[in-house]
């Protein structure tokens, strides 16, 4: 029983596993997963690896600090690295605290914005 619950919880918490490794982000049935490489730290330039589901195309990316009202001091660039796979270079968190990733994705003729909250501690 316990095992079954754990399995169910595991499945529910990782709906994006089918797209690729990373932290799942979803809204309105659209899904992607992202990973930060190397590990995020204030003042370190990192890349964000994105895997999208169901042929979703990644068209835009930004990172913002909503409580401060500012974004990045650097302009990330998106490169497609394979089917549903993208690498975003040039992300540098210049302050600790709550950040938000913004992914603009296209599904057919509609574009949607997915957001993911993350906290940079150090």
């Amino acid at each position: 029983m316990k095992l079954a619950l754990a399995l169910a919880a595991g499945l529910a918490a990782t709906p994006a596993l089918a797209c690729g490794p990373g932290i799942p982000v979803s809204a309105d049935g659209l899904q992607l997963a992202y990973r930060i490489e190397p590990a995020a730290a204030v003042g370190r330039m990192v890349a964000v690896e994105v895997a999208t589901c169901d042929g979703l195309a990644l068209e835009g990316f930004d990172a913002r600090m909503p409580i401060h009202g500012h974004g990045l001091n650097y302009r990330p660039r998106i490169a497609a690295t394979g089917p549903g796979a993208y690498r975003i270079e040039g992300v540098l968190f210049h302050m600790p605290g709550p950040w938000q990733f913004v992914f603009d994705v296209r599904a057919g003729e509609t574009t949607r914005r997915l957001t993911a909250d993350l906290t940079i501690r150090r």
Partner: peptide, 12 residues
């Protein structure tokens, strides 16, 4: 050189 490649010129 990555910061130089990616630095953004902003109004602020």
């Amino acid at each position: 050189a990555a910061p130089t490649t990616h630095v953004a010129l902003l109004h602020r």
